[in-house]
């Protein structure tokens, strides 16, 4: 009864607010909606606006959109992206690095996920825990750890030279190889987890049926296991490819000056060159060429999964 009595002043206020269309329901919807509109959608409009401005020696360092009673718009920044080969090369290079890292993560991750999924119970959850654990420690510090391993006088070269495999230290740090290692290492758990979730549901009866019908283990693997685990392969690959493509930290720490990745280019354009309009144009181009196709792909996929 106390609850009922307590609600009555509330009910009066609610009725009053409802007269102006402010029901509790509408308020609940409005809170996350407004937050995301202001801090997620509007920012892109600001970036779009600045991408059409001229760089200026001022604070903020770009020309105003409205000046002298007219709208000042320039497409110079986009023309610049098109003319200077740096940007187009950086796009291709990002796609290439993200793609091959994804393939490598799949080749390493698939057997690991399969092994974990086939392990008996206490061992299985322990192995899963070992996959998840690095994720909770600092990503930055794990990338940093590779500097100590890969550099010319690092752990890897020391070990290889001691066992006599090489006479000269390998130059890996500040090359694309180091970037590949860093990306595969960082995103491997993201590949393994969806694959595991898929493979653990794999019906043993299918594999046995295939073997009973005379298929060699290899044939069973390629014709039964792989097709059945396709959703896991796709999900894991997306989870590696998407963050890898805009990656900044890994190429900045492990890559060299000629490692081209679009995330690093945007960062340099903004922080070192202080060219806000060009940085904004890079962001908009990235959004159109990379992010929107990925989102459409994901939407098509989730629709496919529903039916």
């Amino acid at each position: 009864m106390t609850a009922l009595r307590a609600t009555s002043p509330w009910r009066k206020t609610a009725a009053l607010l409802a007269r102006f269309g402010l029901t509790g329901r509408a308020l609940v919807i409005a809170v996350p909606m407004l937050w995301l509109l202001v801090f997620f959608l509007v920012p892109f409009l600001v970036v779009l606006k600045i991408s059409f401005a001229d760089p200026m020696l001022a604070r903020p360092p770009y020309s105003p959109l409205f000046a002298d009673g007219s709208i000042q718009v320039t497409i110079g920044n986009y023309a610049y992206l098109w003319e200077d080969s740096l940007y187009i090369n950086a796009y291709w290079s990002s796609i290439k690095i993200a793609f091959f890292s994804t393939v490598m993560a799949l080749l390493i991750g698939y057997p690991m996920a399969y092994y974990i999924a086939r392990s008996p119970e206490p061992k299985r959850s322990l192995l899963l825990l070992l996959i998840v654990l690095p994720f909770w420690t600092s990503f930055l510090l794990r990338v940093y750890a590779w500097i100590g391993i890969l550099k010319t006088k690092g752990v890897l070269n020391m070990v290889l030279m001691k066992i006599g495999l090489i006479d000269q230290p390998l130059i890996i740090m500040q090359t694309d190889v180091a970037v590949y290692i860093g990306i595969v290492y960082t995103y491997l758990p993201f590949m393994i987890l969806p694959l595991y979730a898929n493979l653990v549901k794999l019906d043993n009866a299918m594999l046995e049926a295939s073997a009973d019908l005379g298929a060699k283990p290899m044939a069973t693997f390629f014709r039964i296991t792989i097709p059945l685990s396709m959703p896991g392969i796709v999900a894991g690959s997306m989870l590696v490819f998407i963050p890898a493509i805009g990656e900044f930290v890994i190429p900045a720490l492990l890559g060299g000056p000629d490692t081209l990745m679009i995330g690093k280019v945007l960062w340099t354009e903004f922080f070192s060159n202080r060219d806000w309009p060009v940085a904004s144009a890079v962001a908009i181009a990235m959004l159109i060429l990379l992010v929107i196709p990925i989102m459409l792909l994901r939407m098509a996929q989730s629709k496919g999964a529903d039916t």
């Binding site: 996350p32 970036v47 805009g246 900044f248 990379l290 992010v291």
Partner: peptide, 23 residues
């Protein structure tokens, strides 16, 4: 709302950072 909730998951960090700063 669906679009705005899922988009941050695929948005490169450099874009999110830049756009929020400019905002």
């Amino acid at each position: 709302l669906i679009g705005m909730v899922t988009a941050p998951l695929v948005m490169p960090e450099v874009i999110t950072g830049l756009s929020l700063l400019l905002l």
